[in-house]
Design a protein around this nucleic acid. Structure first.
Length: 233
DNA sequence: AACCAGAGCAACCGCCCCAAA
DNA sequence: GTTTGGGGCGGTTGCTCTGGT
């Protein structure tokens, strides 16, 4: 069945909503609710199609919408649910109170998808660090263009003005779990942090001190030529 | 200051599902 | 069982803003 778009009727407005139109829609819905979207614009005195009104209400004007940046937890939830459910944005939105499917979809396409790609590249890279007793991999690892996108609660300590030590080597330390790696600092010659690949990135498991851990991440990103915003870490 | 490219986001489009006639 | 119409959903578009040159 082929049906003409509902906005095809002449005289119906398209494009961005004005504050006046928003107010009319809000006032109408507060008074009468929204039973029939198709009839609503006519009754409310709006030169819009019902579909446009419904979208404007559900994606923007609804009072329970939580606006602003997505928290780290929300982003992680989206990534996890997307893995589980696929691109079923409405189903994902149903599990994130105050967020709309459109908003989630936009966030996904604008940066979560990219981040996931980076993480996948990271996983591939971690494979390159698989322990091979027949090969002197240390030298190769030192010169490899490290591109890890990690996450750590402690990175807020980062201060770019401080002098920093160099990461001198990246070494597989667990032959059975090849994605685990140990980073060493040339200044302290001590192991800094143990990180594990957890699909969504690399998680700091332990560090001698928060400062050392911050130092580690900063150096890692500096080396990769990709210094992230602190909020992104 | 002007221009350009990329990111972010609101809104639209077209298809599908489902209930009512 | 078939048709019709409303609502919902995912994909896409295009405008605006921002940062870099």
């Amino acid at each position: 069945m082929v049906r003409a778009p509902c906005c095809e009727k002449m005289g119906l407005k398209k494009g961005p909503w004005t504050p006046e139109e928003d107010q009319i829609l809000i006032n109408y819905i507060q008074l009468y609710g929204y039973g029939n979207w198709r009839a609503l614009p006519k009754q409310a005195g709006l030169l819009r199609c019902g579909k446009s009104c419904r979208l404007r209400w559900t994606n923007y004007l609804r009072p329970d919408i939580k606006r602003g940046n997505f928290s780290r937890e929300e982003e992680e939830t989206i990534v996890e649910l997307q893995e589980m459910l696929g691109n079923r944005w409405s189903a994902i939105a149903a599990r994130l109170p105050g967020r709309t499917d459109n908003e989630i979809k936009n966030v996904w396409h604008s940066h979560l998808k990219k981040r996931l790609k980076q993480n996948q590249a990271t996983s591939t890279m971690s494979d390159a660090f698989k322990y091979n007793p027949n090969q002197d991999t240390k030298k190769e690892q030192e010169h490899m263009n490290i591109s890890i996108h990690g996450r750590s609660e402690s990175t807020e300590y980062i201060n770019p003005q401080e002098s920093r030590s160099e990461i001198s080597s990246v070494t597989s330390f667990d032959h059975n779990m090849s994605s685990n790696m140990m980073m060493k600092s040339s200044s302290s010659n001590e192991s800094l942090v143990k990180i594990t690949d957890e699909n969504l990135g690399f998680e700091v498991v332990s560090a001698d001190s928060p400062e050392m851990e911050s130092d580690f991440w900063y150096n890692l990103f500096t080396r990769a030529g990709d210094i992230p915003e602190l909020s992104e870490i």
